[in-house]
Each structure stands twice: as C-alpha cells, then as structure tokens.
Design a protein around this nucleic acid. Structure first.
Length: 611
RNA sequence: GCCAGUGUAGCUCAGGGGUAGAGCAACUGAUUCGUAAUCAGUAGGUCCCGGGUUCAAUUCCCGGCACUGGCUCCA
C-alpha cells in the first residue's frame, strides 16, 4: 500500500482484518503461503496458497481464531527494516507467518524483489504474526469492530493467467456491528433486483440448454421491452438524420481479414462454418470457403458505404442498424443478460470529415444524455479511453499524429459540453480513442452500457473514400456509437435499475382491468375498455378469473402490472374507473375518459415512474 | 478457459441406498367478492446427462454439461 495515499478509517479496519485473517489461517495451517491482502470496495481479501482446499465449512473455525486475535487486542507495530534483513526473514519463512519455517515465504520474497531500490521496506507485527506491508493499519486488532468471512474464490497470482492460482478468501469488516448488519441487509435487497431473478419471475427471457449458453430467448414480455427501446432509438435516430440499413448475420473470412479482426479476435468469434466444394481447388472435401458469424457490424456498414460512390456532399453519412452480433465469450464469463453470446446492438456508424467531427461527436453525446434523462439514469461514469504512446504499432495503430488529433478533439468536446468524465490511458480501441459509459449492476459488477468510439484507421483498410471539393479522394473518419449498448445488457441493466417496476411506456403489461364479479354487463364493459385501449396501442388485459377482487389485486401487483383499473358496479354506473398504480396503491375513482387520456399521455411522453 | 460450490415439479425448497415430498403457480368445479391470498379437488418428476460400485443408485464413486461465486478476458 502506498503511504502517500493514506487509507480511510474503514479501509484501515479492513486491511487490518486481512492481516488478522492471515494470522488465523497461519494458526490452523502453519505452512500457508500468503501473497497479497488488501482492502477492497466491500471488504478485504487475502490470497493464500495451501494444500488444504478452504471451503465455507472452514469459515467457522477461521473466524473463531480471528475472534481470539481481535480479543487479544494486539498492537499493530510498524518497523522499517533494511532490504537485506527483509530478504533474510523471507528466506527463513518468517514473513506472513507466526514463526520461522522450513520453507521461504515465497510470494513475499517475490514481492520484495519487485520493490524499487529507493523505497522504504516496512513490516507490521500483530502478536506473533509478522507481515511485509506498507500499511497503514488501525492501532490495535481490537479496533476491528465487526467482521465476517463471505466467500472463497480463486485468483491468479498478480492477476496473470500464467501464474499459479491462489485461494482468495473474501471477508468484510466494519467499525460497528450494526453497520455490518445494514450491509448484509443491503446485499439481500440487491439480490431481489438481480435481473436474472426478475427475468424469470416476470417471464422476460429464458435460457435453454439445447439452444446454448449465453443465447437468451426473449419471451413475449421481454420482447415488449426490446420493441419499445427500438422504437425510441429509431425515432431519435431518424430525427438526428440517421438512415437505417440491414445486414446479414455472417460474412466470408476475407472481410474479417481486411478489417483486422482475424486473426486478432478469432478467439472471441464463433468458429467458422466451412464449406466444401468438390470442384474447388484442393480436391474433393477440401475447404472452399469459410463464413463467420459477425462479432460486430462495422465491416458490413463499411461495405454499405462502399456500395455507392460518395461525395463530400453526402457527409456526414449516418448508417444505423439494430444489428445482431455473436461473440464466443469464455464460458466462465457469461452472466445472465449482462454478458451473452448473441446480442442486438444499437449500432450506427457516422462517416464524416475531420471538420464535421466535433459537431457529430457532440450530437452523439447529446443523444446519450437525452436517453439517460428518459431513464432517470444518474449513477454512471463517463470513461474517456486514450492510447499509450509506448504501445503504438502493437496494441494501437501506429499513427501518432491521428491519435493526438482525435484525442484532443474528443477531450475538447467533453470539456465543452461540461460532462463529468475520467480519462484512462491505454484503454482505447486499436483504431482510436473512445468514451464508455460505465454503470453498476445490482450485485455490484461494473459494465459498459454504452460506447462512443472514434475510428481513424479501419475506413482506410476498407478503401473507403469520398470525393472532396478539390476533386481529390479522401478517407472519412468514422464514429462508432451505441448509446443504448446492446438490448441484452441494456435491458438487464434497466430491469435492475427499475427493480422490475417499469414506467408505463415500457411495462410489458401496461394496464390490467379487474372486474369485480362476473356479471355480464361488467364483463362486457371490461372487454370494451380493453378493446378501446388496444385500439390506441395500449397493452391491456382483463382478469376474467374467478378470484375475488383482493386476489386479483394481489396477482396484478405481483406481476408488476403498471396500472390496475378496478371496474365494479359502482364505477359502471358512474362512468368511472378506480385507478390503482403498482407501488402507489389505490388512487380512487376517476371519469373513464380522463383515465384513458392520462394513460395515453404518459405513454406518449415516456414519463418516468415519479411523473 | 481456470479454481471452488450447486443441480429434486413451472418457481422456492425439504428429503434420502429399496412406491418421490411441501408451498406457490397450472387445471377442474363451486364461490359473486370494492383494492395484497374464497374454498375444495385434480394433474404434474429421466431427482441434469453418461458410466461405475451394489441384489438395488435420484442418493455413493468417476467423467461430462449447465448454473452460481470469483479470477482471467471483454473489438
């Protein structure tokens, strides 16, 4: 830990709890080898190498040992040592241990060799346990008020796949027990809004082994969400001067060789479909052609650009498509809708001149902000990813001048629009800088929900040109943007964002009419109301079950139906409807015409739940 | 892909070497009820898949698959 970057009190508690965890593990398994044990967002962990496989069943006795260590209230003692002394101790197995051992403290030894010459080396001692550590810690082990081990996972040493896998024991710690209890309550709440759980409960989407992992099936309710988002996107894009195109889901190998995706991204693409042709060169049974499922839409759109000659008068040319892409994500990376293998992207490519770039890029950002406003999205982070000059020609296209130019343009746009952002070097795409919008899922994982990228390299590879004013051919810049990301991830996010309580315009079932009883006049009035609403495009149903009104209300609430219209004899006679809104309760009776007009206005204006 | 855990009805879960269990949902019938559960009945199972041990495996063992939690990755 960097002493120039002091930790908060909570971080010090958690960092100290990590040392106490290592102390406890050392007591039970003295041959344990420890790597790193830092505080993290919601707690702490310590990486350990151990013959015994630690399972949650072991947590009880580890926690017991930790409890004793805390009760003993040992002081965390800091001591600066010479490099030689530290190496000596590591060799004797004394670091991250209770005593000298047969084996050296091998990870600590490795960490020591990585510490720069001019940096101070410090040890922290709590009781008999000594660890190599820059600190800081709390004063005494007793300052750790409440702690709990949460799970065990595995992690590669130093995060490198080629290194050995260590067991990572996660825990959390707080100053006060009540704070910890509040934290676990919050976790339970978060689980309730997990899109995987809500997706099943609300019949939004499903996975099936025979279809394949990461390939979601959109059920009717989920498809409503998709269609509403597409309607929104198509309206906004039409208004912003985009043109719609459609492209196939696959293409021949050669296109991906041109784009550069093969062989660099072959691992992330589904393996090719190989065609054999008896007449082909190579003889019978030889492979005559390979087709790949598309992992991105850009090459297809570039080909559309190229299909007709373009003049500078055509630019900016904005080609939009909800394109379906397929990516062979590693099996362990799949996560509900947030990480899938088939995805429908809110994609568009804007071809423009450098002079037009700023205005176009800014218009895209404005489209983002407009969407975020509609969805009431406030908790996001704009991440501006730039290149690393040291990796030109390797990770990034070797064109320092274009990098400088485009990054300055993007930075300028961001500053001009007063958008809050963080700049992250070395995270750009290979073809240009980009802005990603980061959000967090209910279970705390971070995802890119939208992206806006500059591409100054690939159009040239495809030989895209336009005839400029001076009658010379020039290569356009390309802006690659997906403000609504993919349907899969965006809807996964929206489910959690709204906890399944969608605003009226998005709700799969917008209105449910609940007749009280089944007298013929009531049933008839309910059907007539449904027909009228459906005539206006409202997704309305009638609950014609034999449930009592209480039961009907319960079932509609459970299904998260947005608006319930209770229709009884009293309402029928008054020409009224009793309105009940999910989560808001009974709003009382209103004239029928007013109710319908309110519903239509809310849908048309895409009002949020609070409106 | 790697490490660990889990896999029983549509859902949530109990059980256990020898006819497979509950609640909710579904279906049938009765009920005519004014804002979060009306009553009764019926039906529903390859206990994830394959192999092994056993007189007998859903249960124990091995392998696979899927999911969960992480790690790695994420154009």
């Amino acid at each position: 830990m960097n002493p120039k970057n002091p930790m908060t009190e909570l971080e010090r508690i958690r960092h100290s709890a990590a040392h106490v965890l290592a102390t406890a593990i050392s007591r039970i398994w003295p041959d344990a080898q420890f790597a790193a044990g830092p505080p993290v967002e919601n707690g702490f962990y310590y990486d350990v190498q151990l013959g015994h496989r630690i399972s949650p069943e072991d947590f009880g006795r580890i926690e017991e040992e930790m409890g004793r260590e805390i009760k003993a209230n040992h002081v965390f003692e800091r001591r600066v040592v010479s490099r030689a002394e530290a190496m000596e101790m590591a060799t004797q197995g004394r670091l991250a241990a209770l005593a000298d051992r047969q084996e050296a403290s091998r990870f600590k030894l490795d960490i020591l060799t990585g510490i720069p010459e001019d940096e101070e080396i410090s040890l922290y001692t709590n009781g008999e346990f000594i660890d190599l550590c820059a600190g800081p810690h709390v004063m005494r082990t007793g300052n750790i008020g409440a702690f709990k081990l949460t799970h065990v996972a595995s992690a590669y040493y130093k995060g490198d796949e080629r290194n050995p896998q260590l067991q990572r024991i996660y825990g959390t710690a707080f100053k006060k027990k009540a704070e910890m209890e509040a934290y676990f309550t919050m976790l339970e709440e978060a689980k309730r809004r997990d899109h995987r759980k809500l997706g099943r409960e609300m019949d939004l989407f499903a996975f099936d082994d025979d279809v394949g992992p990461g390939l979601p099936l959109w059920l009717p309710n989920g498809t409503v969400l998709i269609e509403e988002l597409e309607k929104l996107a198509k309206e906004s894009e039409f208004a912003a001067g985009y043109q719609r195109v459609r492209t196939p889901h696959l293409a021949r190998e050669n296109m991906y060789l041109t784009s550069g995706h093969l062989p660099y991204y072959e691992e992330s693409m589904f393996p090719p479909m190989e065609l054999s042709d008896k007449n082909a060169e190579g003889g019978a049974g030889g492979v005559s052609d390979r087709y790949y499922l598309k992992a991105m839409n850009c090459p297809h759109h570039h080909k559309i650009f190229k299909a007709v000659p373009h003049s500078y008068r055509d630019l900016p040319l904005r080609l939009a498509e909800y394109g379906t892409c397929y990516r062979y994500e590693q099996s362990g990376e799949l996560l509900g809708l947030m990480r899938v293998r088939s995805m429908q992207m809110n994609d568009a490519h804007i071809y423009c001149t450098p002079a037009q770039f700023e205005e176009e890029f800014m218009a895209v950002n404005e489209m983002y902000l407009k969407y975020f406003k509609i969805f009431g999205l406030k908790d996001y982070l704009m991440r501006f990813s730039t290149h690393d000059p040291a990796r030109l020609g390797e990770k990034f296209v070797n064109d320092p001048e274009m990098w400088k130019q485009t990054e300055e343009m993007v930075r300028g746009v961001l500053q001009k629009s007063g958008i809050n952002y963080v700049e992250v070097p070395n995270e750009a795409a290979f073809y240009g800088p980009k802005i990603d919008v980061q959000v967090w899922s209910a279970i705390g994982r971070e995802f890119t929900i939208a992206t806006n990228q500059v591409d100054f390299a690939v159009p040239a590879r495809f030989g895209l040109v336009y005839k400029d004013r001076d009658n010379t051919e020039k290569t356009p810049l390309c802006i690659h943007r997906a403000p609504l990301g993919t349907h899969e991830r965006f809807i996964g996010f929206l489910i959690e964002h709204y906890a399944g309580n969608f605003p009226l315009w998005l709700a799969p079932e917008q209105v449910r009419i609940l007749p009280i009883g089944d007298e013929p006049e009531l049933v008839e009035a309910a059907s007539a109301l449904r027909a009228e609403l459906r005539g206006h495009g409202v997704r309305a149903e009638v609950d014609a079950s034999s449930d009592k009104i209480n039961g009907k209300v319960l079932r509609a609430e459970e299904a998260k139906v947005h608006t319930m219209l209770v229709l009884g004899r009293r309402d029928l006679e008054a020409g009224a409807l009793s309105v009940r809104v999910h989560g808001k309760g009974n709003l009382g009776a209103k004239p029928r015409g007013e109710v319908v007009a309110d519903l239509l206005a809310s849908i048309r204006e895409r009002r949020g739940n609070e409106a």
